[in-house]
Each structure stands twice: as structure tokens, then as C-alpha cells.
Write a protein that binds this DNA or RNA. Sequence first.
DNA 1: CGAACTTTTGACAAGCATCAACACGTGTGG
DNA 2: CCACACGTGTTGATGCTTGTCAAAAGTTCG
Lengths: 249, 249
Amino acid sequence: LTDPRKDILAPTMRKLEKRFQFSPEDQAAFLALPASVKRLDTGGYIVREADVARNCCVLLTGFAYRHKIVNGDARQIVSVQITGDFLDLQNSFLGVADHSVQMLTAGEIAVIPVRAVKNIAYSHPAIARAILLDTLIDGSIFREWIANVGRRGARSRIAHLLCEFAVRLQAAGESEARSYTLAMSQDQIADATGLTPVHVNRMIQSLRREGLISTDKRSLTIKDWQGLVTTGDFSPSYLHPEMFEREPQ
Amino acid sequence: LTDPRKDILAPTMRKLEKRFQFSPEDQAAFLALPASVKRLDTGGYIVREADVARNCCVLLTGFAYRHKIVNGDARQIVSVQITGDFLDLQNSFLGVADHSVQMLTAGEIAVIPVRAVKNIAYSHPAIARAILLDTLIDGSIFREWIANVGRRGARSRIAHLLCEFAVRLQAAGESEARSYTLAMSQDQIADATGLTPVHVNRMIQSLRREGLISTDKRSLTIKDWQGLVTTGDFSPSYLHPEMFEREPQ
DNA sequence: CGAACTTTTGACAAGCATCAACACGTGTGG
DNA sequence: CCACACGTGTTGATGCTTGTCAAAAGTTCG
């Protein structure tokens, strides 16, 4: 399953470069990280809660999600990762995983030994800073999710989630403006929003009935962006889109 | 209100040293950061959402909380900070604040220009790594809060919050084992747990009735730790207590 | 073409919100 | 020193939002 290739990390480098200018030396060091590619099926585990971290993974293709088990039976999805995202920086640096990471779709990941990531961060300040920024934006999204689950009604929560995906996928160049393939089942949307699958189903029907979205199998089309933004109380600033423009220094 | 002093940051340095060994040079650079002390009353703002960051603040005494406004009227508290915590690393590095930071009690903060923090992180890898670790632990707590608000019932949410405070305050040496001063009003607990104040009141009464806790004004005593842990489904691993022991490298 | 998953439907129950009022303590100004 | 306002905690009655349980219909894939 493990297949070492060349320039595996080139797409990730390009993504980081949207935020930062790297010196040729930084770039070379990053691309020289010892990475191997691993292909995973839907539902494949990348990290299990309580694992001791040996590797640090980057998502190359497909989608993944991070989740925690609550009370032994309930599940809470705490984030969804898209192509190019780091999957487990926290686990790598903190040593022991406080949550699981699992594939939402089939896809490929790059696997890098933790030690190599720590070393490059220690010796290349620009890369350390890129990692920090990535982690901070992650944190910003977490905060918005706390607010989403804590203070919005069911319809609004779902609308918010759909808006977030639309913006993130488009920023990553993974989708058209108002239409994308929703990789999640209603069950998974329920676990991301803190609702039950039955209620999610009813709320999605209601969003459809009011002409905000339409669905066809797993593809979702936003028919009334402004309406969805309003019902979802969505404002993209927490995604820090300004960070996708390169900053001097 | 602004009063420059010497060795303002010494307590913060000591806190960071619990996680890391710093070289004398790192320590000197950190302590030499240009910081001034500012005293704030209860409710005083440290950062307002959408502010452009000029300073980076560390909490020296007292408690603070971070929150977002949802839908124009509701408020969601996304974290509570205790003595020694960085208050707005995210704002400093991301440039524009995605949430507000406000004092829970009266207290003092150290104010450091953003540029100085960025510079020291860039030139001192050990400090950059300490900042990254702090940010990652923050993120871990956010994830647990998403799970708390998303998948636990009202009693359980509140019990979980009370357990978290107990552990964090004790780790910071701010409280006795099973008793501490709860700086939050029931209104604020409601905003942290995504409930209404009325319901929080009833649930706290129920925790008291079952002999799990007792309260006297703002002081809280945990009378049955194991019971509170069980109803709160609490497990401290997400606080990464292992990080409070110094790690080599 | 059947097994396993996902979406949908309905009836019903429960948890939490809402509204409104009252009690209590603390600080402030007359 | 009392009167009063203000923040906080408490109580009760009522109803909406969301959960629960159970089953059917549609979809995907070997």
C-alpha cells in the first residue's frame, strides 16, 4: 500500500505558497521531506483516538473528517478536511491523538514521519510559521462550529455548514461557484451539526421546499445563495480568506 | 492606564517552561519583549471582533473569555482563559479578530506589540514551537467544546464544564483540589454551554440536589468528583496534561 | 438481483426555550 | 440610614423544537 514517489508534496507546497513567500531553500527542504503515498477507502482510518503519533499526514485527494466519541455511543464530527489540508498536525506535535481522523471518501494521503516534520519546523522559521497559520485558521473554524452548534437552530446550522463547504471548496478550486458534490451522508451531517439524522432530513427538505438548495444524489446546488447565507447566518470572515492572498514578510 | 514594568513576562515564561526547556538566550529574548501592563475591570474588552490586531496580550491576573455573536442577538462563549494564558495569538497572527475577548473578572494583562511577537517567533524556533503547542492545545479544547455542546445533554454539559475548570485551575496552581471560585455567572455558563440561563439554573440545582456539587455565592465545591466526572462524561486527556511535564527536544 | 446503506415518512415523547414574575444581595445616592 | 436600582439567582406555566422508534422506499454495488 505504501509507494514512495517523487514530488508528492508539490501540490501542498503550492497551497502553502498562496499564503506565504518561501525561499527556494525552504521549498527544497519541504519537497525533500520523506513522504510516501497511501491510498485509503471510504471510512479508512488515518488516526484513532489515543494513538501515539508516528506520522503526520496530508490529504492529497478526497475528503476526510475528524471526530470524537461522546458517552460511548454518540459521535461528534469536529471538522471536515479537503484536498491539501494537513490532517493531524495536532496529533503529531502533541504526541497522543485526542480524536480520530477518518476518510469521508476514498482518496490518497501523504505520510511523513513526525520527526521529519518537527525538524523542518525547527530549522525553517517560514515553514514553522505556515504551520502555525494553518493551525490558527483551524482554530478559527472550530470556534465558529462551537457557535454553530451552540447557538443556531437546526435549519440554520445545516445552512451554515453548506455555505462553509461552498466557500472552502471554491477557494481550493475544487468546485464551481454554486454547485458541489457533497461528500457527506445525512447521517454525517447530523454528527457534524449535533442533530439526529431524521431531523437533518426534514430540515434539508425544508431548505429544498423554500428554493434555497436542490439536491440530486450527492450533488448539491445552491439555488439562492443570499437566502442560504441569511438562514445560515453565514459570514465567511472566520475562514480568513484574506490569508489566501500572499502576505509580504 | 499603561505602565511599563520590568520582568512582567516572568510568570508567563515560567508557565511555558513547564512544557519546554529554553536556552538562556531564548529566555532572555522572551523577557526582553516590550510589554506594558494594563489593568482592566470586569467586562473590559481586550479585543473586539473585526478589530485589526496591533497588540498581543497575555493574561497576568484574573479570568477572561472569548466569544462570538450569533444572529445579532445570541452570544456563544468559545473559551475561558486563566492566568498565564495567551489571549489573542490567533488575532495577532491572522491580523483581523474573528471573535471578541473580554474580562470575566477584573485583572491585569500584558500588552505586547504584534510585530515583536512575530519577530521573536521567527528568530527563536523554541519559542515558535511553544506558541504552536499552546495553539494546538487550544484547538484540542475547542474540539471538546464542539462535542460538549453538540452531543451532551444539558446536565452533562454543565458537569463537563465544571470538571474542566477544576482540572485547569488546579494545574495552574490556582485552586485547591475540589473547590474553586467560579468566576462565571449562570448567564455566562449558559452562553458557554449553548443553553438558556433558566435551564442552567435548574440543572445546577439538580447537580446540587444529587450531592455532586455545592455552591456558596461564587465559590463552588465538588462533593462527588467521580459522580461529576461520570455525569459530565469527562476525561482530561484533551487538556493534554502530559504536556505540562517538560519534554526533551 | 439481492444485501447493505441511505433517504424518507409518521406518530409520539421529551428536553429545553420562552415569558413573566419574584427573591435576594450589593452598591449608590438622597 | 433608608430607598432604590441593578445584577443575579429562582420559580412556575406553557409550548415549540428536536429526539425517539419503527418501518418503508430508494440507491449503490458486488
